[in-house]
Structure formats: structure tokens, C-alpha cells
């Protein structure tokens, strides 16, 4: 039978999302989506020796947007960044016991946000002085909260 509505696991993560918030001076920052489309995610990571030691998110969006954000932080925390780059949208969805078909495309952006944060981290590692535009945005936002 086709899945009707969200799985229990999606609802559990929606109601009790893990790792909500921001990180000051993150080692990597990723932002995907757009409020015009109804989904916007921000991911913050702290990295030591290429291992993700801490991770936070903020998400504007529907139930699956929030649940996938929460799930991806659980999956990636403690992982080597190269391993975390391999986490796919499908991995996140199956860890949540599946998502309704129409949600697979538009609101399963959490893995993408994670990948953006890791790319940002790697970019900074190459040129540590420069600091990304995204990080500046983040610092600006953090200071206002």
C-alpha cells in the first residue's frame, strides 16, 4: 500500500528535532532552499581532524523539511567529512522510514545542506584567511540573536 502521510519517525523528529540552533564561528556553513519555494535550511558544523564534532540546524519548511534536517544531524555527527559527503537524500529518507513521494524532491534538502557545509569547511581549509561569504552572513545573523 502506498504510504499515507508521514511515518512515526518523521513525526517524532518533527516534534522533537535534534540539534536545533546555530554555531558561532562554525568551521562549515551551508544554506539551501529558498523561502519563496517554502523551504530554507541552514547547517552549521564544527570539525576537528576532519571529523564532524558538532552540528546545528535551522529550518523554515514543512514537516519533512524539519524532520530530515534533524535526521541528517544525527547521521553526520561524529562522521569523517568524506564519509558525511556520501550521505544521500535517500539515506536520510530511509532512516526516517520513508517520505511521501511528493516530498522526496522538494523538501529533502537536508543532505544537500550538509554537503554545502562540508564544501565550505574544505574551502576554508584551503584558504583559511579568506573565510567564506556564507560564514560572514552567519556571523552577522548570530550576533543579532
Amino acid at each position: 500500500m502506498a504510504q499515507i502521510g508521514y511515518s512515526k519517525k518523521v513525526m517524532e523528529h518533527f516534534m522533537n528535532p535534534r540539534n536545533v540552533g546555530t554555531i558561532k564561528d562554525p568551521d562549515g556553513y551551508g544554506k539551501v532552499g529558498n523561502p519563496v519555494c517554502g523551504d530554507l535550511m541552514e547547517m552549521f558544523i564544527k570539525v576537528k581532524d576532519d571529523v564532524i564534532t558538532d552540528m546545528k540546524f535551522k529550518t523554515f519548511g514543512c514537516g519533512s523539511a524539519i524532520a530530515t534536517s534533524s535526521m541528517v544531524t544525527e547521521l553526520a555527527k561524529g562522521m569523517h567529512v568524506d564519509e558525511a559527503m556520501k550521505i544521500t537524500r535517500n539515506d536520510v529518507a530511509s532512516e526516517l522510514d520513508g517520505l511521501p513521494p511528493q516530498k522526496m524532491h522538494c523538501s529533502n534538502l537536508a543532505a544537500d545542506a550538509l554537503h554545502e557545509a562540508i564544501k565550505d569547511y574544505k574551502g576554508k581549509k584551503k584558504s583559511p584567511e579568506r573565510g567564506s561569504k556564507q560564514q560572514k552572513e552567519d556571523t552577522r545573523k548570530d550576533s543579532k540573536q
Partner: peptide
Amino acid sequence: EGESILLN
């Protein structure tokens, strides 16, 4: 977002 409002 509205769907989150509905679920909540």
C-alpha cells in the same frame, strides 16, 4: 510554513 503549523 503552513504544513508545519497544521502538523503541530
